[in-house]
Design a protein around this nucleic acid. Sequence first.
DNA 1: CCAAAAGTGTTGAAGTTACACCCATGC
DNA 2: GCATGGGTGTAACTTCAACACTTTTGG
Lengths: 246, 246
Amino acid sequence: MPHRHDLNPRVSVDNVILGFDDENLNVLLIGRSLADGKMDDVLALPGDLIYENENLDMAAQRVLHELTGLTNLFLQQAGAFGDPDRLSKPKDRAWLKTVRQEPEVRVITIAYFTLINMHEFAPQPASFAQSVQWVPIQDIGDLAFDHNQILKTCLSRLQETIAIKPVGFNLLPTKFTLGQLHKLYEAILEKPLDKRNFRRKIQKLGILTHLDEKQAGVPHKPSRFYKFNEIKYRELAETGFDNFGF
Amino acid sequence: MPHRHDLNPRVSVDNVILGFDDENLNVLLIGRSLADGKMDDVLALPGDLIYENENLDMAAQRVLHELTGLTNLFLQQAGAFGDPDRLSKPKDRAWLKTVRQEPEVRVITIAYFTLINMHEFAPQPASFAQSVQWVPIQDIGDLAFDHNQILKTCLSRLQETIAIKPVGFNLLPTKFTLGQLHKLYEAILEKPLDKRNFRRKIQKLGILTHLDEKQAGVPHKPSRFYKFNEIKYRELAETGFDNFGF
DNA sequence: CCAAAAGTGTTGAAGTTACACCCATGC
DNA sequence: GCATGGGTGTAACTTCAACACTTTTGG
């Protein structure tokens, strides 16, 4: 019988941690080191087996915390992935042998995604990660396991979500410009959005408060800074935009 | 090491199977019999542990098939549920002892929902179910495990989905009236919809073809029958309605 | 003739799209 | 003065919400 603080060998969580650098979406990926100390050349989403005494959300928060030092963030479940062969690529199996007690066991993973401000933390190696790096989304090649599929699903879910709720704000610094927000939406939705229409629409939501402060040191007309009206923001995040079809 | 056709003792699937009787949404629930042969008075969603050699979708299809005889249905994953105490209610534990080799093991479950035509099959007891019944959604009381929570999540997901894709058509017979479809949407969304606006909108989607046939034997003006334009239907189901906010 | 659901159009309000120019700043 | 992104309004169009009466049938 398993003890409560044991690892559950069959279930893991994987996190798609997204950051924004005013231009592109980036994903936080980890590198793996092999038995001989060399680095694997395949990157992976950060993830870990769950403990017997923690629920899935807690496990995802734990992984996020170990990697970023951040706690209590918005973290949305995107689905479960459990094809029997998801751990069967040779490089993945080699790596599993170095870190898992039972490397051959089939593992079902629950995928989460979150949005964080790229500049508010320094990624640090964690128990499950020898190296950590931000990778622009369009530069991501073959990932470990089924992580390309997981990433794709999470991005779709994010696109659906952002159309209904004011998500994505966690990606920005506390003071930000409408230009940044605009580029963020374009990056997430992967399509250009008309500037004037975007501004009108986003302001009508009533979740932005403008500050008196302006940008300084920019070689163009300085932009006004905005912050969120937290209260309205939370309200809207719960009810959604009512952007429904019926 | 587990054999490929063994059960995975830690991971299950649970299905929310929805049917429509022209009035209410119904959920297919199973009754459980205890060690002494008596029936438990708590109903449950149909579900089962997964096998080592099947993926999650296949496991959900298997549960659905064993119960309904139906194969290859639209089945959407709604999320993973894995609180450590989700199996800890006394009645649930008593039942688990009668059916599981390792009744104390923590099980993470993946929830799916599907929509089927209530009249096109006869529910039959399955290996995991001693009795099967349709229960109107508003009459559902306390369910086993965390099944009330799972049901709630699935219904929300269905509401979100139906606003974006033409789901829900599987719930109806192949020939149906706009009145039936209208009531179905009201049942799923739990709110009244204006008749004229609904008809206009649903017809503009271009997925309905009207037949020359009409209702007979009804004590009111007979309604025209419609069927789906499968091709358009599939197209729309993939792309969605473009009902998005940005 | 009564009950019951089918079927049908219009209007005003709101929202969406598309589009072009001037502004403030650093260099 | 030039390059850069900031900031703004309008008109045509589409969509949405609200609303009431006539039709066909069975009984």
